Simulated scan of single mutants.
Amino acid sequence: MLRQRHVCGPVRALAIAAVAGLLASAAALPASAQNATPAPAAEVPTGATGAQATPEQLATAVQFLKVSGLTIGFDDIIPQYLQQATAIYAGQRPELSSMINEAAVSLVPEFMKKRNDLDTSLAKFYTTRFSEDELKQLIAFYQSPVGKKLATQQQEILRDSMPVVQGWTRELQDSVMKRVREEVEKKGGKLGPSAADAADDAAADAPANKPAAPAKK
């Protein structure tokens, strides 16, 4: 039986980068794109009315996702999963390796449709926040030279920046715990060490507290 496995490291990194790209897209746009000409008064974004997106608006949002490269990180997930499944099954039945590989290749079109379904689902988040005209303005930006450069570079930038963000959040968390404790102690209160401090202290004390080996007779 095929055991369930978690997403492998590279796939998880790609997925996180892609989602991070979706969240960071507005911040990444230059001021000229962020301050795009507002939609005409007669065309109200669907998010303001709760109206369902038109097929044209949805198609425009999908086009925006494609030209912006915001979801390109998901493109490698399908081949990664197919390779993973192939390796697992081939490991169980080596004599069927050729048949397993052929089956995986034949399934590519089926799963690529699921990839398109993801774009359609994600596009709906944009149709509730941007009018069709606004989406077209965003597309125009990403079709410009600087927009194309941003689309090709943003996933790599996001991947490279993840360790920086993780280090910053760890340092911030430790600093917040420390400073709160210090301010409370200034007022006469007493707080115990944080879990991180306790772990560090335990690690630092471990060698010193280790009982000495009994002397050999």
Rank of each mutant, 00 (worst) to 15 (best):
L2Q: 13
R5K: 15
V7Q: 09
C8S: 10
A24E: 10
S25I: 12
A26N: 05
A27L: 09
A28C: 07
L29P: 02
Q34V: 01
N35T: 12
T37W: 15
P38T: 13
P40W: 15
A42N: 13
T46D: 12
P55W: 14
L58T: 01
A59M: 09
T60R: 07
V62R: 12
L65P: 00
S68A: 14
G69A: 13
L70V: 02
Q84M: 12
T86L: 15
A87Q: 12
Y89Q: 11
G91T: 03
R93A: 08
L96N: 07
I100R: 01
N101F: 03
E102G: 10
V105H: 12
V105Q: 12
V108K: 13
K114Y: 08
D117N: 09
L118C: 01
K124H: 01
Y126T: 00
T127F: 02
T128S: 10
R129I: 00
E132K: 12
D133I: 15
D133H: 15
K136L: 13
Q137Y: 04
Q143V: 03
Q154K: 11
I157Q: 14
P163H: 05
V165W: 11
L172G: 00
K178F: 07
R179Q: 02
E185V: 03
K190I: 06
G192P: 13
D200M: 11
D201S: 11
K210Q: 12
A215R: 09
K216Q: 14
K217S: 15
